[in-house]
Simulated assay, not measured.
Amino acid sequence: MPRTYSSPTRDEDARRTREAIVRASAKLFARDGYGKTTMADIAREAGVSVQTVHLAGPKAALLIAAFEVSFAGDEGRHGLSERPALVEIMARPSLDDALRGWLDYVARANDATASLVRAMTVAAETDEFAAAAVADLTMRRRADLGRAAQWLTSRGLLAEGDREQATDELNHLVGPETYAFFVTVSGWSPERYRAWLEDAVRARLARWNPGASSAGQASVLR
């Protein structure tokens, strides 16, 4: 059996190289779009060879990796609820603090990835890998929001029977498409969008939890 060899230094170099490639991909896809960005462009921006970029994955895969890192801070299919920042937010004793923290996180993530979402839409029209990846991201986003609806249920703010509809409504309210409509298309500032988002989510909470305790309502709706 051949012996395997692992070098911490080599592994760290590989990690830094990939990080540089993904970071360069995010910048160029957001600035120039999917069609105009080439692997050679990414290589120049990252300071590596074109061959190294190709070894990091096909163009569409780099786009998806760029989105994941820009949106959530790292690559991978694990849900938002597993990421340390969200774990801390959702564990806050105050419902109001947790809600505001969650909305801040979502608004910042949408702001950071709006241009990449447009690039992914374009890529999905012509690239089968991109189309499948976008479909997977859509499914994962709904699963994340389903867990958010479950969190609302556990806090007494949502009836069990309303969870599926609440998941769909949250998906619409906090989705990147809604952000793009208000900020990119309508010209709203990110701050105006964030204020609208909180008003909209709180309005839905008021409709979802008529049977919740007065104390619970006062905490999250004040």
Rank of each mutant, 00 (worst) to 15 (best):
S6L: 07
E12P: 03
I21K: 09
S25I: 08
A26T: 07
K27N: 11
G33R: 01
G33F: 08
Y34D: 08
K36E: 12
Q51D: 06
L55Q: 11
A56R: 10
V69D: 04
S70A: 14
A72M: 12
D74F: 11
D74T: 14
G76Q: 09
G79Y: 07
I89F: 13
R92C: 01
L95Y: 01
A98S: 02
L99P: 00
G101T: 06
L103H: 04
R108L: 13
S115K: 14
A119P: 06
V122F: 02
A123N: 11
E125Q: 08
E128W: 00
E128Y: 00
M139N: 05
A143D: 13
D144W: 06
A148I: 01
W151D: 00
W151K: 02
T153M: 03
R155A: 11
L157F: 01
L157M: 09
E160K: 10
G161K: 02
D168T: 07
D168A: 06
H172S: 14
V174W: 15
G175L: 09
G187Q: 08
E191P: 09
Y193H: 14
A195Q: 15
A195V: 15
W196S: 04
R202Y: 06
W208A: 02
P210N: 02
V220F: 05
L221V: 00
R222N: 07
